[in-house]
Design a protein around this nucleic acid. Sequence first.
DNA 1: GAGTAACCGAGACGGTACGTCACGTCTTCTG
DNA 2: CAGAAGACGTGACGTACCGTCTCGGTTACTC
Lengths: 194, 194, 194, 194
Amino acid sequence: MEQALKIERAGRPRDARLDDAIVAATIELLEERGYNDMSLAAVAERAGTSTTAIYRRWKSKSELVAHAVFRTEGDDVVAETDNIAVDIASMVRWAAEKLARPAALAAVVGILGESRSERVARSTAAAMASKRVIDRLNRAKDRGEIRADVDTRVLASLIAGPVLNEVFAGGAAHVNERWIAELVSIVLDGVRPR
Amino acid sequence: MEQALKIERAGRPRDARLDDAIVAATIELLEERGYNDMSLAAVAERAGTSTTAIYRRWKSKSELVAHAVFRTEGDDVVAETDNIAVDIASMVRWAAEKLARPAALAAVVGILGESRSERVARSTAAAMASKRVIDRLNRAKDRGEIRADVDTRVLASLIAGPVLNEVFAGGAAHVNERWIAELVSIVLDGVRPR
Amino acid sequence: MEQALKIERAGRPRDARLDDAIVAATIELLEERGYNDMSLAAVAERAGTSTTAIYRRWKSKSELVAHAVFRTEGDDVVAETDNIAVDIASMVRWAAEKLARPAALAAVVGILGESRSERVARSTAAAMASKRVIDRLNRAKDRGEIRADVDTRVLASLIAGPVLNEVFAGGAAHVNERWIAELVSIVLDGVRPR
Amino acid sequence: MEQALKIERAGRPRDARLDDAIVAATIELLEERGYNDMSLAAVAERAGTSTTAIYRRWKSKSELVAHAVFRTEGDDVVAETDNIAVDIASMVRWAAEKLARPAALAAVVGILGESRSERVARSTAAAMASKRVIDRLNRAKDRGEIRADVDTRVLASLIAGPVLNEVFAGGAAHVNERWIAELVSIVLDGVRPR
DNA sequence: GAGTAACCGAGACGGTACGTCACGTCTTCTG
DNA sequence: CAGAAGACGTGACGTACCGTCTCGGTTACTC
């Protein structure tokens, strides 16, 4: 659909390589310097382009960062199996991969540092991701893999929450397979039918 | 110790009311505008003072914010009982009270936005808080209230983590007693001896 | 000569109406906003065309402005009579008509704002116009209408100069027939044979 | 009067040497590069200061330039004698000194390039200077040195106008004593009583 | 009547300057 | 010595314009 519109677009087309170069430079600099010390001028220089080209694509620094770090919207389709243990583990793993990078932390700083109204708009994305997780948990509940009296909203916050906690405490390093296994084990024991 | 020095300090003493006015203005503006859009000039104006007075007390904006939001360092002595269910609930409640305010979110932005070295220094505070939680959980494990094979570090992240998750998703509003009770119930089921 | 080349030019011919529309829009915007605040994008929009079409015709903004305001190069053939009083009056009148428009002032800004080398190139046009004036004055001197010891270069600057002065002082409004007559009267009294 | 107010001013006083350094750098760069190619960043660098310090003193680039080039408001008190020939010559000389510098031309570009409303405000300064000239001419007329039927407004434009003309034609070089003498001679012949 | 060359519009591109803002430091006067 | 006022340098932000370019599409002359 958007594709159809693009075909009819007039004017010089955007240089697609610039998009990639800008995003790559953004992530690099985010990891090297952190959010506040990353200037768009530096991003432009490293990407071999100009700040103008950046502002043509994103409205602000925080929007660029949010897109660069969390843009991969299609890849969150973690395989859904019939085994809730496997599913929860893979969701935790997915959250860990998303968040346990220095750039992710920097991106959160950018998003949360915005004025309230913009922030609310952006956080709907997080809300939607959360909704998908809850839906899946509900289906597992329907299948009887999860106890009927469990509030799946609370359960959902037990999946991403611990990862967030480690990231903010500065110890994302030890979020490894063992850590994930231990987490999943506790959570499953807490929700599986008795 | 610092108290002792203050007694013998020469010259005009600091106006103690300014401390409170500055902290109050900081929290207000943090909630109204977010971290980035809160300027120290605005804080000074609302507090009826000048930026000079602020910088005499705190080294930087992020330090002021960190102090204003998390300064209450003594009050975290949550009563320790013999009942781990009660203890975990009160720890979750404590985390929720600490974090489920708009200003807390803004403070995190300020701390995480700092350059890496400063951030590390400050996060030791969080680490220490975390250590106290883990110690308590270990004592409960020793008493047999928690299964012997549970990693208390992971368990600790199940206490503050979910709260963090709700805060960042923007929905700190529904972190109420029912939510906390549900959370504690799941976690306890997951860690209590079989 | 250029005309001859045009006849043999292949491809789609230029839309002659665009030339006029661009020039008209340029003058309008020059008068409304001044040189610096007139953007070529605005000119293009008002002329119902694009900046591309403008740059196909003129090399730069200042060149467009110079052409739009002073392009009428053929019309300066002020009738030369045997009466220097009439001639000087008509030259002053011509200068006034050329310069006493808001757009003329803006055009001067454009030309003088150019870097030195470009400016020199363009000012030869002014020099040539000046030369024609001086030649005419010299002929009047030869005929005895002007005192033999008058430096016609200085006299020439007494014709356009006062008009320029009024324009820059912002009071081009009162450069009317009475003003011109008074000016010519003084100058003639100063140069006619005693 | 303004002096009195200054005495009561609180805060760190402005560094007066910066004013001079900025003005000097402005004039230098104006002569080297012209108005458009002179950036405030370059001015700041050469003056050993920052653009912020410049904007604290002047509202815009054109205002800085206008002040730097034409600020010397007190020095225009050309000695008034009883001899109108001497006075006119000295006024022409004064105009020539003011205008026949590369920086003056650049300053005119800046002032005239502004949007109309700002320009009008500034040109009142020129109008006032003009008024002083006319007043003096009127006094000479009262003394009988100038013919009673001469319009002194037109006469005034015969003093600065020719200088302007030479400057814009690019030939300010030959505005020397001989040129001035010749100009004054013609003008005087045109206005002195018969 | 098919080719071709130059036009047209839209709009992206690099570059550069502008003017604003905040931070954290400093300098001065006043209490 | 604290406080208020306000200057200072640094450095980023986001906007605007210039002049160039690339694209799809159009129009006229030429073969």
